[in-house]
Nucleic acid binder design. Structure first.
Lengths: 202, 202, 202, 202
DNA sequence: CATGAATGAGAATTCATTCAT
DNA sequence: TATGAATGAATTCTCATTCAT
């Protein structure tokens, strides 16, 4: 009986933890870090402020995890594409397109990835996250250069540039109007840009 | 006499205004938006907190102007390059290089340009600023496409991508070590990336 | 069987109660009242926070008992000395010396005895504890005065003064350096002081 | 005109600072450190919470000043007595009596002097304060020993003991009943105790 | 009975903005 | 007009106590 209770409890604990993370992510996505106070996170997640501190030792720690888990999830998807089939150019295009499509659905989270944070601790985490992102692109860049498909270039710089390019192009004033058409064209243009930048061919 | 005093006054008012803007810019560049409280701005500019509110109706308004005036200054420099002599590709390279060199000397201001602001009002301004930046690059892109030097592409998207690419590549953990050599290589790699991206040639 | 289980139960209950008291005492001795939160007590005693409230109705009640049991233990030792053999002066010296030696080994508990408590309830208990302490010394004072060994004096006041004198002299910034020598001299000086104070002879 | 305004302002600032200190002292005296929250200090002193932080950088800093200013004031009075006329014994008696009389009028402040503080910073200050107190008594002890009026003894220890003795004797459950008579007797007994302790004569 | 997750009031501290002088 | 002291709401974090399991 004690065991079962424990199992149920653990499930609920894990659920609460996820709910807190989801609430924090949601708040950041909607209103930026400013809108994501501990009180707001508590309210959205249906817990008390004190409960948040049972799951995370500080506000910084919570948002570091929000950031890094979002990035990890994104990176996993991109890695599967980048390590998949096709030429280096095809895989690069697919990865950029995949990222861009998702970013357009939750546009404000892209902000958070490049936002100046309130706290030096979060700042450090943010830089690591950006690096993780560009690491994914370094893989395909290296492969493309090795196979002669891409011209010689600084892998580090090009990877950062690629990340910066589509990030910037995706950041827009939050217009909640219908924009499917434009979105498709936007994604296409971004993908083209990145391919040209990396391959050096139109 | 009343007229002269008024003239002197106006001069001093304009001077104060500039001093406030410069102080705010300096504080943001050194410590980010967090370090730029109204009190800090007042202290650095040698005025009182109350005086700040004579010149700017709110903190948001002040930082909106800090942002836009910094961007305007940068844009003026870039415009001179972009509207100067040489092929479209040469001018694009020169503009990117010029921006990158300056950014590497005061690296933290680059953060501010892409920083998540405290206030929705500033947020809106920030997006306009980014647009102003990319407007400069749109000019040279249009010219290059018109002359057949660049392949057909979305001018809007490519301009944003170029801005994002070098911005991201320039943002690094503030390493205060000697890095002249690396800086030169970094700028070169960025410029190459952007040229390839836009011209489609290695 | 029900009886036996009950007996075993009662034993375990008593054991838990003692463990809680010991844990609380330990925490106060090491880090003061600040460090002695209910959660910390629960952790050290190997019980849950809720369990603490099975044995003590409130935090105040727990620490009141910590205080009074520590004092009772100390008083028992002192009483054995005070009611032992020798002249009143010898017994007073022995009691003071005994207390001082023990206090120097666990110096922080002396703080707790004179510490300002978090709670008026504990405050009241603390005063009673001090009174209990001085009651021990009143015994030997009365005896010494009756036998003519000590001059006439207010037994109440002198007892309190004696307690205060050695308490104060024993409270020092926690220097963890070797100090055996100094300790011996310190104890000697304290004992001398108290003897002079009570006997009126050098 | 600017000068006069400044003068008035400075006066008011100094007044506020004193009011804050007085409010904090009052709150500690009445209800201990626990009752002296920043909000309470603000309310009693008729200022806002934020205003407190214009005068003191932190709660700790405020209470360190409360403590040390109270001690300094007390020490000044005692020093005047100790460095005055009369034999060493007479001056010691006078100093103890003077302290005791005042302490009996604001009995809880004596607690604060020996209270375990919330903050390590305040703790450090408290220890220094106690030392300052006993330093005053060291003076008269040294003089008395040098002149042969007092027997040889550890000046450090005896001074601490004297402070501890009267401090302890003065600490009582806060009985707000009339007690003038008892007070007089109490002070007398304390003074006698200390004299005997130091002189070794009844 | 035991557990320990949850509560929520309360603490210290910050800072954009106002307004008496 | 300039000053800068004062405001007070908001923020992060703590911890004694409760209660569903």
């Amino acid at each position: 009986m004690a065991y079962q209770r424990s199992a149920l409890m653990q499930e609920r604990l894990a659920e609460n933890r996820q709910r807190i993370l989801a609430s924090a992510r949601q708040l950041v996505a909607r209103g930026g870090f400013r809108a994501a106070s501990i009180n707001a996170v508590a309210e959205v997640s249906g817990l008390s402020t004190g409960a948040i501190y049972r799951y995370f030792p500080s506000k910084s720690a919570l948002f570091i995890e929000v950031l890094s888990s979002a990035v990890r999830h994104e990176c996993d998807i991109l890695l599967a594409i980048v390590d998949g089939d096709g030429s280096a150019g095809e895989r690069l295009r697919a990865a950029v397109e995949s990222f861009a499509r998702r970013a357009l659905q939750g546009p404000h989270l892209a902000y958070a990835f490049i936002a100046e944070p309130a706290d030096p601790e979060v700042e450090a985490a943010r830089i690591l996250c950006r690096r993780e992102f560009s690491d994914v692109f370094k893989r395909v860049l290296r492969q493309g250069i090795a196979s002669g498909e891409f011209p010689k270039q600084s892998v580090d710089v090009s990877a950062a540039c690629v990340v910066g390019a589509f990030t910037e192009a995706l950041v827009r004033p939050t217009e909640h109007s219908a924009r499917r058409r434009q979105d498709k064209a936007l994604v296409g243009a971004i993908v083209d840009f990145c391919e040209r930048a990396v391959t050096g061919t139109a």
